[in-house]
């Protein structure tokens, strides 16, 4: 399975996490849904859907927490018959990153994913460049940037 990154500094921490947690799919993205790195996806359309849905879920749950006067939820997990889903946000020098992890319950567990997710968060924080916060994506640039990101993510 391939692991690819638009932001190069995310690549090594992601590879390590995938290997330790035995994750099947991983997506690292900004809260706006801009994909920074991925592992295991084979089609661009899947990446786009997963990113859009994940960030929407994060936005909804953050809002629910706000309504309840609580800090944002640390992580959301769902365990299905064959797969588990883990969705959480982490802080880096380049801002918040949302991580979506899908794992096979036969080869991993939410406990293992959580354990190595803490390591991923620490590794990404350490690897993230301290300067050069990316500029806001303008609507006019969005499609071009998305297309470039997908090309990088799928090695085109």
């Amino acid at each position: 399975m391939s692991t690819r990154a638009v932001e190069a500094w995310t690549l090594e921490p992601l590879k390590r996490f995938v290997s330790e947690a035995a994750a099947r799919l991983v997506l690292l993205m900004t809260p706006a849904g801009q994909v920074m790195a991925q592992h295991g996806f084979s089609r661009a359309v899947d990446v786009m859907s997963a990113a859009a849905l994940s960030t929407a879920i994060m936005a909804s749950t953050t809002e629910i927490a706000k309504q309840m006067h609580q800090p944002p939820f640390a992580a959301l997990t769902h365990q299905g018959e064959r797969h588990g889903i883990f969705l959480a946000g982490l802080s880096t020098n380049r801002g918040t990153i949302v991580a979506l992890v899908v794992y096979d319950v036969d080869v991993s567990s939410v406990g293992l994913v959580q354990l190595f997710y803490e390591q991923l968060a620490a590794d990404l924080q350490a690897a993230s460049p301290k300067e050069g916060v990316p500029k806001q994506v303008l609507a006019a640039d969005f499609e071009r940037q998305l297309s470039e990101s997908l090309n990088t993510l799928f090695g085109r």
Binding site: Q79, S109, G111
Partner: peptide
């Protein structure tokens, strides 16, 4: 799940890691 249900651990033992 590999998650902790209950524990009684001496200091220094990482419960979540043991469980996972």
């Amino acid at each position: 799940d590999g998650l902790v249900v209950a524990d009684q651990l001496m200091e220094g033992i990482k419960g979540p890691a043991v469980a996972a």
